[in-house]
Every structure is written in C-alpha cells, then in structure tokens.
C-alpha cells in the first residue's frame, strides 16, 4: 500500500528524445471523486502542471491530461476532476463511467469527508466489476497534520479491508503527489493494461498538427473496460 515504486521518469525522458521507434500510448481514464473542498482540483492541477493555486469550487467537471512514461509503455492520463458539490452528484456517473482509475479523495482534517469517500466507494461498487477499476483512497491535506481528524491507520485499514490502494498526499506542498501518479501508472498498467482490450491505444487524428498535444481521437472509445 502506497509503497514507493522504482522511479522511471528520468528514463522515460530519454525515451521521448531518442524516439524513432513506435511507442504505445495507452489511454487511461482517471476520475477524482470526493466531497467539496477536499482538494481534488488541487491534486489534478499538481498532476497536470505541478502547480498549486487556491481554487474556486469546480463547475461541473474539469478535464485535464497528463502523459506518464513507463519503461515499456506511455500512458496518457485523461483526468476527470469532478465537482464535489451535491448539485452535481446526479451527473457524476457520467464522468466516472468507464474509468480505469478512481481516486477517492478525502481531507484528513475533516472526518465527514472520510465518511463521504466511503459513500463514493459504494457508488462505484454498484457500477463496476471488480478488477476493471483500480481504486485509490487518497487522504489529502497532509500539510495540515496538526489538525488531523482521520488517523493514518484508519485510512490504511479501510483500504486494506476494501482492497483499495492507499496514500496520504499534500497538494499544497506537492508531497507524495508525483509518487501517487507514478504508482497509479504502474498499477493500472499491470492490472488493466495486461488484459486483452483493457486499455485502448491513443492515436492522434491524421489531420492533427503535431504541435498540438491535446487532441482526441474522435472514433476511439474511451470507455472500453475489461475483456
């Protein structure tokens, strides 16, 4: 749980520089779920730009992308940062359907958000066949440990009971955020990427100007999960 995995980032960098041989780029749909104000958008911003800004409540859902290079594959994370506000809950399934990775985020200084994360877990369990989605329990705001209401052990034990991965992060300081993304990348590649049709390949559409890194394949399904 949350164990540190070998860093591959540096190696991957050379990879893209020297590249002439085709590299598989696989699409990974990742969704962030959790109560309002736990730091989902801040985590997403860390993932994609490694920045921290104080944010306003998310409107609907924000979509970001980030590419992670592994030794044998490149993963293109399509991050769906959902709004925690209750008014959007009825539309949230729209965003988490077909997700390969779900991050259940809670605020370690607000017990209620921890309870709420478990409600989200139940929601997810209703929808999914185990094994098709890698689920992480993420205790955020690690920098506010002095106001902690949810002990580390409690998060760990919930995760092990439910078969989730667990980590505590701080989007503010950036602590453990990159580690989280790296471990997610490894796990998702191991668990889902190995399956037949588990992850679809990402291709730029032929008309695309290669300077645009954010483009989508209109015809590729993003929602293909499991065999």
């Amino acid at each position: 749980m949350g164990e540190s995995l070998p860093r591959v980032h540096g190696g991957a960098q050379q990879h893209s520089d020297t590249l002439r041989r085709p590299v598989h780029t696989l699409r990974v749909k990742m969704v962030l779920l959790g109560s309002s104000g736990v730091g989902k958008s801040s985590l997403a911003l860390r993932f994609s730009k490694d920045e921290f800004r104080s944010t306003s409540p998310t409107v609907g859902c924000a979509y970001l992308t980030q590419v992670v290079h592994l030794s044998n594959a490149t993963l293109r994370f399509e991050i769906w940062d959902t709004a925690g506000q209750e008014k959007y809950h009825s539309v949230t399934p729209l965003y988490y359907r077909g997700a390969h990775v779900a991050l259940l985020v809670y605020d370690i200084t607000q017990r209620e958000t921890f309870v709420r994360a478990q409600v989200w877990l139940k929601e997810l369990e209703k929808q999914y066949i185990p094994g098709s989605t890698v689920i992480w329990l993420v205790g955020n705001k690690g920098d506010l440990a002095h106001d902690r209401q949810v002990p580390l052990e409690e998060g760990e034990s919930l995760a092990s009971n439910k078969g989730l991965y667990f980590i505590e992060t701080s989007a503010l300081s950036g602590e453990q955020v990159n580690e989280l993304l790296q471990s997610v990348a490894h796990r998702v590649f191991e668990c889902i990427g190995a399956q037949q049709g588990g992850l679809t390949e990402w291709q730029e559409t032929p008309t695309v100007d290669l300077r645009h890194k954010d483009s989508f394949n209109l015809f590729a399904s993003c929602c293909k999960v499991g065999p």
Binding site: S41, A44, L45, S48, K49, E51, R53, T55, S56, T58, V59, G60, C61, A62, Y63, L64, T65, D81, A83, Y88, V91, Y95, D214
Partner: peptide
C-alpha cells in the same frame, strides 16, 4: 457569469450541465 466563476482558466477544459 458562469465562465467567470469556472476554473476553466486553469483546468483547460470544463464539461458541465447548465
């Protein structure tokens, strides 16, 4: 007004019911 209040400026893309 919604655009002004949304975080599209940092997120890149927003998809929301309205």
């Amino acid at each position: 007004n919604l655009i002004g209040a949304s975080s599209a400026f940092q997120a890149g893309e927003i998809w929301t019911p309205i």
